[in-house]
Design a protein around this nucleic acid. Structure first.
Length: 575
RNA sequence: CGGGGCGUAGCGCAGUCUGGUAGCGCGCCUGCUUUGGGAGCAGGAUGCCGGAGGUUCGAAUCCUCUCGCCCCGACCA
């Protein structure tokens, strides 16, 4: 990468207004600052300024991966269907996997991830436990035909990802590498200047048993995370556990169970309003179809069921809300009037339902509900943590309470086990000469998403405020008026001095009015700006302003380069 | 895939209801003036009005079909 650049020569066009299709701040600012240019839905050109930032992120990732002992390779974007059929994912991956045929009518796909290919590499090269462990990574383009791409680089269809895969002879070794990657990821995101949390997460389509997501905290994040206010527990809300409440002994006298007419009132709000009962007194009854048969799930009216928790609780492969027909068959009533009383089915209930007295449920008859329903007396259920976490819920690990934050998932680490090595018959010979499948781990980082997340976390009304290590340039030199010979000379001299000092510098040598240059400088967000104007120059001074700071300061022209380097070193390390 | 919306100059938009010379702001080009927070004046260029059919003397405008894009939902490392 060339260290310095003249604005007048750079392919860099800023916009005063945001393109109408941008809807999060990072996307708006990336488009306005001329970093990216859209080609199609979820597909972008990276223009010079944008590429410089992406290269910075890649550089940090590469350094830390290498330091952690991983080796870089490059795998193809296009891959044959055979590998995916071998792993079984050709049939399960769905439409996100973009498939096509070549001229010989052979099936191919664009790689959305590379477990198959890397496993193929290793099974064809590694023979012995002596060659393990191994951690192989690449920084490469992925394609996932997302249903709805959005938010610019945050959720594109084509995107750059660092994906690493490790191979081990033993579980302990895989565990160590997981830890090693966890630490490397922390270093990477720290170096990027991001505020983040590592949280426990679901494993999704990649498979495997447990995983951590690295979340950059930001209001616009697509994920919600629960984080304990007292201990270090943090988890994606898809997974976050809730400490079961102490069973409250209600001293409310239990009333006689009774049916009431509730014509057409199917939702919690409707029933609650009609009967003048708080939603928390209602028992929501959900009928699920699962690979273990029909399951009835109960959750308090003011809570939401978490399907993944239900899945885990009943040890099912999948669960799916039952259709109208199944509901009728199970409850003898149209949907909206289901209740646990008298139901002949496998009933699971969230802890919040335990000990409920005088609750309200459907009567398993059209247009009817039951009041004064008591858990234990009128129905029985197996209890589990089944609901979606909400702010204030009890931490599963300590006495603290959970807070909910929004976050952007920038990294994800998985323990894969032998899922892919077994499927692809990738084995090594152990000490006893016996063939064993590799134990694998998998570790991803969204490169473009990390850059976008940095903007979400670092901007103001005027534009981007790059963390030093990600900034496309470290310093911008702004001559106020290039028509003035003295100004121009001083700017050129400083530009060359900074170049000599190894500082990546952008010289705004355009014949534009100062206001235009200042607005662009703020928008682009380079950490340090040196303004050179006739007025100050007469006193032998130039102005240094840090993008993040409100105030500028004056230094002697001859000290300017040194002052810039000093600012970068002391206050903006890594720039 | 379901619901909603939008395609008019590089960008942001008006014009469409009620058919009749294609507009505005920003940007771009030329010249002069100006030079510390998106300058002023004067001149100028730029449109398959997303595409294809149709109705009509005449279509950006009405009808049909199509493609693309955006939002909400379902889905998803």
């Amino acid at each position: 990468m060339r260290g310095t650049m003249r604005f007048s020569r750079m392919l860099l066009h800023t916009l005063k207004e945001s393109p109408s299709d941008a809807d999060v701040i990072s996307q708006k600012l990336m488009m306005r600052s001329g970093m990216i240019l859209k080609v199609a839905a979820g597909i972008y050109n990276l223009l010079p300024l944008g590429l410089r930032v992406i290269s910075k992120v890649e550089g940090i990732v590469r350094e830390e991966m290498n330091r952690a002992g991983a080796q870089e390779v490059s795998m193809p974007v296009v891959m044959p269907a055979e590998l995916w059929k071998e792993s079984g994912r050709w049939d399960v991956y769905g439409k996100e996997l973009l498939r096509f045929k070549d001229r010989h009518d052979r099936e191919f796909c664009l790689g959305p991830t590379h477990e198959e290919v890397i496993t193929d590499i290793v099974r064809r090269t590694v023979r012995s436990y002596r060659e393990l462990p191994l951690n192989i990574y690449q920084i490469q383009t992925k394609f996932r035909d997302e249903i709805r791409p959005r938010f610019g680089l945050m959720r594109g269809r084509e995107f750059t990802m660092k994906d690493a895969y490790s191979f081990h002879a033993t579980d302990e070794c895989a565990e160590r590498e997981y830890r090693n990657m966890y630490d490397a990821y922390c270093r990477i995101f720290e170096r990027c200047g991001l505020k983040f949390r590592a949280v426990e997460a679901e494993t999704g389509a990649i498979g495997g048993r447990f995983s951590h997501e690295f979340m950059v905290l930001a209001e616009t994040g697509e994920d919600a995370i629960a984080s304990c206010n007292a201990c270090s527990y943090a988890a994606n809300t898809e997974r976050a556990e809730i400490r079961p409440p102490e069973t409250a002994i209600s001293n409310e006298p239990a009333g006689p169970i009774e049916a009431v007419k509730t014509p057409g009132k199917k939702t919690v709000e409707d029933v609650s309003a009609l009967l003048k009962v708080a939603p928390s007194r209602l028992i929501k009854t959900l009928i699920y179809e699962t690979d273990k048969g029909v399951i009835v799930a109960l959750v308090r009216g003011d809570y939401e069921l978490n399907e993944m928790k239900l899945c885990r609780a009943i040890d099912a492969e999948w669960v799916k809300l039952a259709d109208e027909e199944t509901v009728r068959k199970t409850t003898n009533a149209p949907s909206g009037f289901a209740g646990p009383v008298g139901l002949k089915a496998d009933i699971w209930a969230d802890h919040g339902v335990r000990g409920m007295v005088n609750g309200v449920t459907g009567a398993n008859a059209a247009d009817e509900h039951l009041i004064n329903v008591c858990e234990g007396r009128d129905f029985e259920a197996q209890f589990a943590d089944l609901r979606v976490v909400v702010a204030g819920d009890a931490c599963p690990r300590c006495k603290g309470a959970l807070e909910i934050f929004r976050g952007i998932e920038v990294g994800h680490i998985f323990k894969l086990g032998t899922k892919y090595s077994s499927a692809l018959s990738a084995t090594f010979l152990d000490e006893t000469g016996k063939a064993q499948p590799f134990i694998m781990g998998c570790y991803g980082i969204g490169i473009g998403r990390t850059a976008a997340a940095a903007i979400e976390q670092n901007h103001d009304e005027a534009g981007i405020i790059w963390p030093g290590p990600l900034a496309p340039f470290s310093c911008e030199v702004v001559p106020v008026n290039v028509a003035d010979e003295g100004t121009k000379k001083a700017a050129e001299a400083l530009y060359h001095a900074l170049q000599e000092a190894g500082c990546e510098t952008l010289l705004d040598d355009r014949d534009e009015r100062p206001g235009v240059k200042f607005k662009d400088a703020d928008l682009i967000g380079i950490p340090v700006r040196v303004t050179i104007g006739e007025r100050n120059l007469k006193q032998g001074l130039v102005e240094i302003k840090e993008r993040r700071a409100k105030e500028a300061r004056l230094v002697k022209v001859e000290d300017a380069a040194a002052a810039v380097m000093e600012a970068l070193k002391t206050r903006l390390p890594g720039s």
